[in-house]
C-alpha cells in the first residue's frame, strides 16, 4: 500500500541524513520502468531524495547491496531486509556502526503468505505508520502450507515435481545473486578446482545446485522470496527453502534474523540434538 505519509517521512529522513553528512549514500527504491517493479536506487545528492518510492514494487531485499557498499550508507528496509541485516551482522559480513537503518513496514500489498515480520526488527529510526509491531522472538511454530500440501504426495510424485521444476532452470544464478545470504567469494557452482558441478543445465547438475543452494541458506534464510521473484523461469525455489525453514524451526526452534544475539543453528549444536536421520536411514538405536 503506498502510504504517502510514510513515503514523505522516508524521503525527509534520507534528505536529513545526507544533509547532515551522516551518510554518503542512501540505498532505497526509485520508480521502475516496468509495472510493479521499483528499482534499487543509490542516492547521494539530497535533492534526489524525492525520487525515493515505498510501494508495492519494493519487493527486492536491499540488504544484498550493503555487502558491496564501501561508502557510509543508510538503507531503507522492510521486515525481511532488516532480518537479513541482522544475519549479516551476526555473520560479521557488515558492521552495524557503518550503517544507518531506516525501517518502515513492508509496503507490499500482497505480502508473503504467513509473513509475521512486516515491521523491521532492527533500525536506527522506524517510520511509524500505525502497523502493529510484534515482539517476535521465535516464530518456529509457523506452518508452511505449501510444504504440508506437497508432503501429502507420494515420493515418486514429489520427485517428478522437483525434477520438473529444476529442469526449467537456465542457471542464470539470479536466485543466488539476489539472495543476501549468498555472499561466498567463489560459489561452489562456479568453482573450477575441483569442478563440483557442470556448467550445463543437465538436470542432475541443476538439481544438485538447487539442493545445495537451499542447504547453504538453511538456518539463515529469512523467506524474503527474492530468489523466487528473480527467477525468470518460474522455478518454485521457495518450496525447498520453506521445507528447510520448517525443519530448522522444528528441530532447533530457530528462525533467522530476529535477534542480534542469535547463534545460527548450523554454527552450533546440542549434545541431545535429535537424530532423525538415524531412524529413517535404517540405523541402529
Amino acid at each position: 500500500m503506498t502510504d504517502t505519509n510514510t513515503l514523505s517521512k522516508i524521503q525527509e529522513k534520507a534528505r536529513r541524513l545526507l544533509e547532515d553528512g551522516k551518510v554518503e549514500v542512501v540505498i532505497g527504491f526509485a520508480a521502475g520502468t516496468v509495472p510493479g517493479k521499483s528499482t534499487p536506487s543509490f542516492i547521494s545528492a539530497k535533492e534526489d531524495c524525492e525520487s525515493l518510492v515505498w510501494d508495492n514494487g519494493c519487493s527486492l531485499n536491499l540488504a544484498k547491496y550493503v555487502l558491496k557498499e564501501k561508502r557510509k550508507a543508510a538503507i531503507i528496509v522492510k521486515g525481511c531486509d532488516s532480518r537479513s541485516l541482522v544475519n549479516l551482522i551476526t555473520e560479521n559480513q557488515i558492521k552495524r556502526e557503518n550503517l544507518y537503518i531506516i525501517g518502515a513496514a513492508c509496503p507490499l500489498s500482497a505480502s508473503c503468505a504467513g509473513c509475521q515480520v512486516k515491521v523491521p526488527v532492527i533500525y536506527d529510526e522506524l517510520i511509524e505508520d500505525g502497523s502493529e509491531i510484534r515482539e517476535v522472538s521465535t516464530i518456529a511454530e509457523r506452518r508452511y502450507d505449501d510444504v504440508l500440501e506437497f508432503e501429502k504426495l507420494s515420493a515418486e510424485e514429489r520427485k517428478a515435481y522437483v525434477y520438473g521444476e529444476v529442469s526449467k532452470c537456465i542457471r542464470c544464478y539470479a536466485c543466488r545473486n539476489v539472495c543476501p545470504a549468498c555472499y561466498c567469494k567463489e560459489c561452489f557452482a562456479e568453482k573450477s578446482l575441483p569442478q563440483w558441478i557442470g556448467k550445463t543445465t543437465d538436470i542432475g547438475d541443476n538439481l544438485i545446485f538447487h539442493l545445495i543452494r537451499a542447504l547453504h541458506v538453511a538456518g539463515r534464510c529469512v523467506d524474503c522470496g527474492s530468489c523466487q521473484r528473480a527467477c525468470p523461469m518460474g522455478v518454485n525455489l521457495r518450496l525447498l527453502n520453506h521445507k528447510l525453514l520448517m525443519e530448522v524451526g522444528s528441530l532447533y526452534q530457530f528462525e533467522a534474523g530476529l535477534k542480534e544475539d542469535q547463534i545460527l543453528p548450523l554454527n552450533t549444536y546440542q549434545y541431545d540434538d535429535p537424530q532423525p536421520f538415524l531412524a529413517k536411514g535404517g540405523g541402529h538405536e
Binding site: P40, S41, C172, A174, G198, K199, T200, D202, A230, P232
Partner: peptide, 25 residues
C-alpha cells in the same frame, strides 16, 4: 552498474548474446 547484481538473466534471455563456455563431462 551499482544496482546490477551480475546474474545472467539479461544475457541468457538475450536473443543476440552468444557467449559460451566449453567444458567436459
Amino acid at each position: 552498474y551499482q544496482k546490477c547484481l551480475n546474474c545472467g538473466i539479461c544475457t541468457y534471455l538475450c536473443p543476440t548474446c552468444h557467449c559460451f563456455d566449453i567444458s567436459e563431462m
